[in-house]
Design a protein around this nucleic acid. Structure first.
Lengths: 350, 350
DNA sequence: GTGAAAGCGCTAACAC
DNA sequence: GTGTTAGCGCTTTCAC
C-alpha cells in the first residue's frame, strides 16, 4: 500500500541527515554554530528531498517573516503595476516575498490591509497608494503603524501622507505646474482639468501645481472647469463626454493621470475630434504605453518603477531618528498630443 | 513610563472579554459552539482593541490558510494583470488573500514559487502562466503538485499544461486560426508572424492555429517568416526592426500577443510606415488599451479577467475524480489596424 | 559544535 | 456552551 505522501517537515530532513532538528534548522537558515561541512550535508539532503520550510512556522517562531507588504490602490492601474514591479525587483534581490494588497482607494480597506500585514508580521510595509488630504481618514492607520514600528516593523510610503514615516515624494505639484505651463505657453487659454478624487493628496498636489502655473501667468484658475471622475481610463471616458457636452470650446484638456488621458483620447477619436488639431490632451505619469499611443501622449514623467524600488529600500534600511524624505524629480515629456490651439476662427461654436 | 506597545494576541482579547481563549477563537473564526450573544461581545471587544489574528499562527494550527497562490509569468504584462484582477475579485469575495508570484517565464522559478506556496499551505494554487511544450520541464512541478493535492491542496491552471489538473483552456489555436483567416480573407499573402518563445504551449498553439488557416487556404505556412523575440512590447519593437530589415515586402504582421503588436505599431509609426495602409498589424488577447490605440488594434479577444476568476473558482471547488476542463471561447475583434493589402504596384521594393 | 526543550499564537479535539 | 490542553513546524535559548 502506497504511503500517503505528505508535506515534508524539518524533522524529515533532520532524520535523513542524521542530525537533530536544531542543527538542521541552523544549517538551513544559515545561522552560525554548525560546522560548514555538516551544514552543507544537511542542505544537500534538503535539496534532494525538495524540502521548503513552512514560512508560517518560521515566522511564528522567529517573530518576523521573510516577506514584506505592498499596499496599492489598484493593481490594474499601470501606475501601480510599475511601482510594484520596482518593489518586486528589490524584493527578489533581497530574497523577500512581496505581498501585494489593494485598497480600491477606500480608507477602510487600507486600514484592513495594513492590519492584516501587521498581524502577519511582515518585515516591512510600503504604502504605495496616495495619502488622503483629510488626515482624519488615516488616524487609525497611523496608530496601527505606530504600534507596528514600536514593535520593530519598518514602514515607507510613496506620496504625501500624514503618517510620519520615511517617504518617497514624487514632484506632483511641480509636475502639475510644468504641464500647465507647457500648454499655457502654447497659447491655450480655454482649458479643462480632468481629475480623480480630490480627497487624495496626489491629485490635490497636481491640481495645486496647475493652479500655480495659472497664477504665475496672471490667469484666474477659478474659471477653469474641473471635471472629476474615477481615476481610470473609464473615468477619462466619462469626463471626456462631460467636457464635450458642457465645455465644447476648450482647446486643451489636462488629465491628471495617463490612464484618464487614454480614455479621453479614445472618446475624442470616436467623435472625430482631432488631437491636437482641435483639442490638445496631456496626461501625467508617463506610463509605458504613453509613447505608443497615437498621437503619442504629452505627459509628466515619473519614474514609477524606481519609486517602488526606492520605497522598499528605504523601508528595509535601519530606521532613522526622523523620517527620511526622498524627493523624486519629474520630467516634462512633450509628444504629439499637444500643440498650439487652432486659430480663433476655428474654434467658433457651431 | 509608557508601556511598550505590543501586537495584540488572542489571549488579550479573551482576557478583556472575560472568556477563555478557545471561546474567543471560536467567536472570531465564526465557528459554531458559542452563543451568539457571547460571540458578538467578543467580536466587539476585538474590534475595540483593533485586534487582527496572526495568520501564521492560524494556518500553522489549522494546517491550512485563508490564502491562495497565483503564479504568473510577469506581473507587468497586461495579460496577467487582467487575469490577476479576476482572481483577486474572487479572492476578495471569498475572503481570501491572493499571493501573487511571478516566474519570469523560467521553469526553475516556477518550481521555486510552487514550492513556496505549497510550503506555506495555501488553500489553492492557480498557475496562470502558460505551460511548456516540453513536458519534462515540468516534471518536478508536477510531482510537487501531486504531493500537494494528495495532502488536500487544490490546483487549477490556465492554458495547456502537462499537469493533470483542472484547467481553464483559452482557444489559442482557434483564435490563431481566426486571426490568420481574417488577414488571408483580406487578400494578404506575404505575412510575417511575430512570436515569443515557442517553448510555451500558449504560443505553440497560436502558431498552430495560424498554420491551420494557411493549410485550409491551400497555402504553405513553411514559407511564412516567423520572428521570435521576447513576448513583450520591447520584443515587439525588436521584431519590427527585424521584419523591416529582412522581410520588407510583407503586407501583414501577425503578433501573437497585443503587447508585441503595440511595440510593432510604435516602430512602424516612427518609420512612417502606414498601418494598415502599407502593412496591417494584428494582435492577440485584446488587452484594455487595444481599442484605444490608433490605429485601434485588430485582435483576438480572450476574457482574461473571467479566466482568472474562473480558474480560482475551479480551484476552490471540491476536487473531482477527473480533471475538469473549461474551454474559453475567443472572439475575433476587427478594428482599424488591418485592411486589404495595398495594390500590387504599391508594394514594389525600392 | 550539537542536542533537548521551551515557546511563537492559534485551532481543534476533548472534557466538563 | 465553555474551558483545558495538545499540538501545528519552526527558531532559539540553554545545557552539554
Amino acid at each position: 500500500m502506497a504511503e500517503r505522501p505528505r508535506i515534508l517537515r524539518l524533522k524529515d530532513v533532520a532524520e535523513h541527515a542524521g542530525v537533530s532538528i536544531a542543527t538542521a534548522s541552523r544549517s538551513l537558515s544559515g545561522a552560525s554554530g554548525v560546522s560548514e561541512t555538516l551544514a552543507e550535508r544537511v542542505r544537500e539532503v534538503a535539496r534532494q528531498l525538495g524540502y521548503t520550510a513552512n514560512p508560517h512556522a518560521r515566522s511564528l517562531a522567529a517573530g518576523t517573516s521573510r516577506s514584506v507588504g505592498l499596499v496599492v490602490h489598484e493593481i490594474g492601474d499601470p501606475y501601480f503595476t510599475e511601482i510594484a514591479s520596482g518593489a518586486l525587483r528589490v524584493g527578489a534581490r533581497e530574497g523577500l516575498m512581496v505581498q501585494i494588497c489593494h485598497t480600491g482607494r477606500d480608507p477602510r480597506q487600507q486600514l484592513a490591509q495594513v492590519r492584516t500585514l501587521v498581524a502577519s508580521r511582515v518585515g516591512a510595509i510600503v504604502i504605495a497608494g496616495s495619502g488622503f488630504v483629510d488626515a482624519r481618514l488615516q488616524v487609525a492607520v497611523k496608530a496601527e503603524l505606530q504600534a507596528y514600528r514600536a514593535a520593530g516593523g519598518r514602514v515607507a510610503v510613496i506620496g504625501r501622507h500624514h503618517l510620519g514615516v520615511d517617504a518617497v515624494l514624487p514632484e506632483n505639484a511641480a509636475g502639475g505646474r510644468a504641464i500647465a505651463e507647457h500648454v499655457l505657453a502654447q497659447g491655450h487659454r480655454r482649458l479643462a482639468v480632468v481629475t480623480g478624487s480630490r480627497a487624495l493628496t496626489t491629485i490635490a498636489d497636481r491640481i495645486g501645481g496647475v493652479a500655480a502655473a495659472f497664477g504665475a501667468a496672471g490667469l484666474d484658475f477659478a474659471t477653469v472647469p474641473q471635471v472629476e471622475a474615477e481615476f481610470t481610463r473609464a473615468g477619462g471616458k466619462v469626463a471626456a463626454q462631460t467636457i464635450l457636452a458642457q465645455h465644447p470650446d476648450v482647446t486643451a484638456v489636462l488629465a491628471l493621470n495617463d490612464d484618464m488621458a487614454i480614455g479621453i483620447l479614445s472618446v475624442f477619436r470616436s467623435h472625430g475630434i482631432a488631437v491636437p488639431g482641435r483639442i490638445s490632451v496631456a496626461g501625467f505619469d508617463d506610463v509605458a504605453v504613453a509613447q505608443d499611443l497615437a498621437p503619442s501622449l504629452t505627459t509628466v514623467r515619473l519614474p514609477m518603477s524606481e519609486m517602488g524600488a526606492l520605497a522598499l529600500e528605504l523601508a528595509l534600511k535601519e530606521p532613522s531618528a526622523r523620517p527620511r524624505r526622498r524627493v523624486i524629480g519629474h520630467g516634462l515629456v512633450v509628444r504629439d498630443s499637444t500643440a498650439p490651439p487652432p486659430a480663433a476662427v476655428a474654434s467658433e461654436r457651431p
